[in-house]
Amino acid sequence: MKVLKFLLVFLCAVSCSKRETHPYSFYYWKTNLALNHTEKNILSKASIPYLYTRFFDIDKVDGKFQPVGVITKDQNFQTDKQIVPTVFITNRTLLNITDQDIKFLAENINNLIQKKTSEYHLKTNSEIQIDCDWTAGTQNDYFKFLKELKKISGKEITCTLRLHQVKDKAQTGIPPVEKVYLMCYSTSSPLENSDKNSILDVNILKSYLSKIDEYPIRKIEVALPIYSWGIVTNHLEKHKLINALSKKDLENPNFRRISENTAEVLKDGFYFGHYLNKGFTIKIEEISDDQLRDVVQFLENKIHNFNIIYYQLDSKFVLNKDFKF
């Protein structure tokens, strides 16, 4: 009996100590491709051999398609990771677009990716990722574009998938790709008056993804947030964002702490490169490992064998993080 009890305890201990691990890497979303020592070190430990790198955005300016923020590269940039070119396309780019426009857009995006890949001697893989917050009104043309880009480039075309596009899939449609990247952040707008964390509210995320296991595209990778910011509110309840702030930044003699993550400015002055007036408030939004762990455990019951891509690779965000979930 004692042997049996010991065996049960042992098996339970082994079972409870097991933790599903997910290979991981990062998005790189800066305009200049450069890595400092911290970023190089963190990236070298990533278990996926890819760095998902934003090459440029596409917007429509005065009725014309325009590449915005085209990437540059520091001459000292080096990595063993293969680069996955990633392009963000604004939803308004796709409004009132013709079939001729779609072909033109796909050709020029592919050409610009090839140009930058060659110019900077980048080692890319066989994938191009498109990031777009498409809607019910633009889905048909966006899906045509994805097919056209695949035909022109000869590459595997993948795309991002936002929470509302999962919840409202009957309206927004299913993109014609074999793999999507589920964006597990931006659960609400940071420019609204709310006590919720706009980067990631786990309860909101779970409600949007309650039926993610029914999503017809079976290969789903998971994008998780590690970024932070401060939301500044003025006397007129207008908001603006200051990137990469943390709760430690509220430890200032010119601030009055209102709560753990909110403070009031007591003295006019320049703070974090911005001029803030007395009476302005600063709300910090950042993501804990516990929140990320909660999301991963939820998704493990819905989808299986997924990789994790953290947004984003920046020394401001990667220190003291547990990436091995």
Rank of each mutant, 00 (worst) to 15 (best):
K30H: 09
K60R: 15
Y24A: 10
K64G: 01
W29T: 08
H121L: 03
Y120I: 12
H37A: 15
H22E: 07
L33Q: 02
Q66S: 14
L122I: 05
F65D: 07
D99Q: 13
I109C: 09
K40Y: 00
L33F: 06
T31H: 04
Q78I: 10
L112M: 11
K81I: 05
N96P: 02
S44E: 14
A106H: 06
V84D: 11
F56T: 07
K116D: 00
T93P: 00
F55W: 04
N110S: 11
L51Y: 03
K103Y: 12
H121C: 01
N41T: 14
S118Y: 06
I113M: 02
Q100P: 05
R54V: 03
A34I: 05
Q78W: 06
D101G: 15
K73Y: 00
I97C: 08
L112E: 10
T124H: 04
Q75K: 15
Q114W: 05
L33M: 07
F55M: 11
I42Y: 03
T53N: 04
L105T: 09
N110F: 10
P85K: 03
P23D: 03
R54T: 07
F65E: 12
L95V: 13
K60H: 12
I89V: 15
E107K: 15
I71S: 06
G63R: 14
Y50G: 06
V87C: 05
K103G: 00
N32Y: 00
L95G: 03
P23N: 14
V84H: 10
N32F: 00
L122G: 03
T79K: 02
L94R: 02
N41G: 00
L35S: 02
K40F: 00
S44N: 15
T31C: 02
S118C: 04
N110V: 14
D62Q: 12
